[in-house]
Design a protein around this nucleic acid. Structure first.
Lengths: 177, 177
DNA sequence: TTTTGCATGTAAAGGGTTACATGATTAC
DNA sequence: GTAATCATGTAACCCTTTACATGCAAAA
């Protein structure tokens, strides 16, 4: 259960609405945490009931009202304790690999097309991450060291996507033969 | 929903009991699909009710009875149709990266210890995969080409774990500074 | 004698997806 | 006029984890 903690981490940086968090997940954190808006709104409700965050309604000009959530001292305590505890290594459930494993039931063109679709997706993701990295590398050294830890998670994305793509290349040429 | 299909893929190769499948998931497929025994037994029950698999009880000497499941023609049809359809790219939810992202709330030694724990885990996984690869590479060419697709999923594991480890190395030395 | 392996499950709770639902504003 | 962006939610269902539950055989 870490959507809870992912949200707390984001709120610890700055108070945000559910919609803000949603964008954050999509843009910045998408390569390591994903959540749908329904899940985020529900989780915010729960965290609010648990007293880990507070809610303030903000009126806006020519835009709907916003519910801005901020972390409470209790929330900070919960987050700090979680951050200091051990996390289990990630569970991997990869449907594409299940497909490949049983790929003798599909046609070769079918498999290659599917691989290409995924290659397109991963290439786009990698390009986005590289763009973000460029921004980071243009920061002055002080700002760079301030954002080192988020940058390292970005590096994980870049290294991971590169590895995925080189695997896909290998797999494609092996299947073609 | 692919535990269903992961099980069908395995049963398509050979009839197995829930316990057999569980071992299979732990040993061979653990780097791309994970499931607990409770989930497997439940899913087998469902698949049986849906008529995608059949169940035969096998008595054994000095061991408990076994329920051996086999795929039915309906199951084969379902599996073939799934294999030929598109799969969504994997959702990534990585708690360790959430922790790192908010790592300013933890101590440096704490972060490094956690990284080391995960490095140990990934190193062990990689070693196991390399052992399996060695076995494959000693197969005669005909057998190699027969098991090419499962081998490619193994390659994904090896390339992925190598990438993870080189990231972790980079992350550790960046944090130490 | 205690642990490991074989073999199977139920029940409750938690986490995540899909479908349904609304409504204003802004840009094309 | 049509699509996208902003903004929030409920309900049903599906998937996964954790806790509880049993029992024999073999090996350490």
């Amino acid at each position: 259960m870490s959507l809870k903690h992912a949200i707390l981490v984001l709120l610890e940086t700055e108070p945000s609405s559910g919609y803000d968090l949603m964008r954050h997940f999509k843009q910045n954190l998408g390569y390591f945490w994903n959540a749908k808006h329904q899940q985020i709104y529900q989780q915010l409700k729960t965290l609010n009931e648990e007293g880990l965050i507070t809610c303030t309604i903000e009126s806006q000009v020519s835009k709907p009202d916003k519910k801005v959530y901020a972390i409470t001292p209790n929330g900070e305590a919960e987050l700090t304790s979680w951050i200091s505890s051990e996390v289990k290594p990630n569970k991997i459930n990869d449907a594409l690999l299940v497909k490949l494993y049983g790929g003798h039931l599909a046609s070769k063109p079918n498999l290659l097309e599917e691989l290409d679709r995924h290659i397109t997706f991963h290439t786009t993701t990698l390009e986005k991450l590289i763009q973000i990295e460029k921004t980071y590398l243009n920061f002055p050294p002080i700002k760079q060291s301030k954002y080192l830890l988020p940058y390292l998670t970005l590096r994980r994305g870049i290294i991971g996507e590169n590895a995925w793509l080189s695997w896909a290349k290998e797999a494609k040429s092996a299947i073609k033969k």
